[in-house]
Design a protein around this nucleic acid. Structure first.
Lengths: 246, 246
DNA sequence: CGCCAATTTGACGAACTTCAAGGGTTGTGG
DNA sequence: CCACAACCCTTGAAGTTCGTCAAATTGGCG
């Protein structure tokens, strides 16, 4: 249908017919340059985005304009399901690197829901997994030390990308600067810089040129004190991951 | 039908017929003592809880067993919608004070969804607002200083309870110890104790005997740098709140 | 009273922030 | 081709926030 890597990214969740239904409902792809505003807080939304390629971040800012990234979307994510039932968002969404998006008008989603209630239930499920990821971010920020927090975040991104075939045990793409990373883990960019140095010296991993290089996957998961239950990985992925992390 | 304060808590969301439908689907109330496990992570769930009275907390623990509370439910919350589409939870849920819950079997929700697709959409909406609250907790933990973080949290609980008629400008019930509060805001209980002392000395508010006493509502919202957009308050509540905080 | 849980206080050290400066890379225009 | 700007990464030094350990205090409740 087109030359983008992912048309529908949840092979374990949707059957062929559902995938076709969703795919047909999507508008043609739109391309965005790096670091462009995709959705502005408060805008009225009548369509939702499926992220074909690239990375997006959700963020809110405090009074001084310092940002906190509250969520990261990877290729294959339905990034905007909140907008469907809410009609607007309370936070902004930006592209990180270049991004390709396909919009689905909410009217189409209504039609699909009417035709196939189960499909709408599955979309609900996706948004509930997103919420579980949010809860884990709360845990990470509230209870983990800087060192652990960084490693833990890299673990999450490894698994989420691995489940889409976009990560290898040796590394994966992650188009973030150290300043972005600081806005994710709730630390200053200076401190993140030092912590990254620590992870590098410990032979765990690095972040350079928009890529995480993993030197020791097992160590990364141990240092990160990572648990993956909250990702609700499909059974097929879960098996491969379990083997990888044995 | 029974003598509990709230049977269905979203008067702006559900019409009478929907409320009746939901109410009829609920099993008889169950009472829980303070600090009892309501849901255990990983348990298979075939029913979801509506919180009639009392407070619940969701939490995850790190390797050393230190807890991080990742969500707080107040009377009138559908606490367990995640369980509906996921079938299990990745975190535990405990009662704080005594609590009264009415379970709705998932089979009943299925039936309702079939009968009234709009109703299921509204439940989805509720779970999306929960997710927005999660995102705000991420922001609070990542970007706000201890002082601000505490005041900010008290602001959220004030508004959520106010929307249910359970808070007054002078204060509201919040059955938390300082240790619980520490597990919410991601600080040590000792530090929370000192910060609470600061808020008291500044004439802002206190937490004592499971109640937040508010001395200066406007100051609390200013110090907390609070914004309420993420709560998606019903229009009627929003108007009253805007007048209150003018 | 005596016990228990919750709160409070002090002292010290660790984690983290801020300010500041320097260096590397890339892209752009003269 | 070089100069320059912009951006990102790195490092140092000093100060603040926050955690940990420990002990004392308070207030219910049997």
């Amino acid at each position: 249908m087109d030359d983008f890597p992912l048309d529908i990214a949840y092979p374990d969740l949707f059957d062929d017919e559902e995938a076709a239904l969703l795919s047909r409902a999507q508008l043609p792809p739109q391309r965005f340059r790096p670091r462009k505003r995709i959705v502005r807080a408060g805008d009225l939304l009548n369509q939702s985005a499926y992220l074909v390629d690239g990375f997006l971040c959700r963020y809110a800012s405090d009074r001084l304009g310092r940002r906190q990234i509250v969520g990261l979307q990877i290729p294959g994510d339905y990034t905007d399901l909140p907008a469907y039932a809410l009609g607007q968002l309370e936070h902004d969404i930006d592209s990180l690197g270049p991004a390709v998006i396909r919009m689905t008008p909410h009217a189409e989603l209504d039609r699909i829901e009417h035709q196939r209630p189960m499909l709408s239930r599955k979309l609900w499920r996706i948004s509930l997994i997103d919420a579980a990821i949010h809860r884990y971010w709360i845990f990470r920020l509230g209870r983990l030390s800087g060192h652990t927090r960084l490693a833990n975040f890299f673990c999450e991104m490894f698994l989420r990308l691995y489940a889409r075939g976009m990560a290898e045990p040796g590394g994966y793409p992650l188009p973030l600067t150290q300043a972005d990373l600081a806005e994710i883990v709730g630390l200053s960019s200076v401190h993140v810089n030092r912590l990254l140095g620590g992870l590098r010296n410990d032979g765990i991993c690095t972040l350079q040129d928009g890529r995480v290089e993993i030197y020791d996957l097992g160590k990364m998961f141990r240092v990160g004190e990572f648990t993956r239950d909250y990702l609700y990985l499909p059974e097929s992925v879960e098996r491969r991951v379990a083997a990888l992390l044995r």
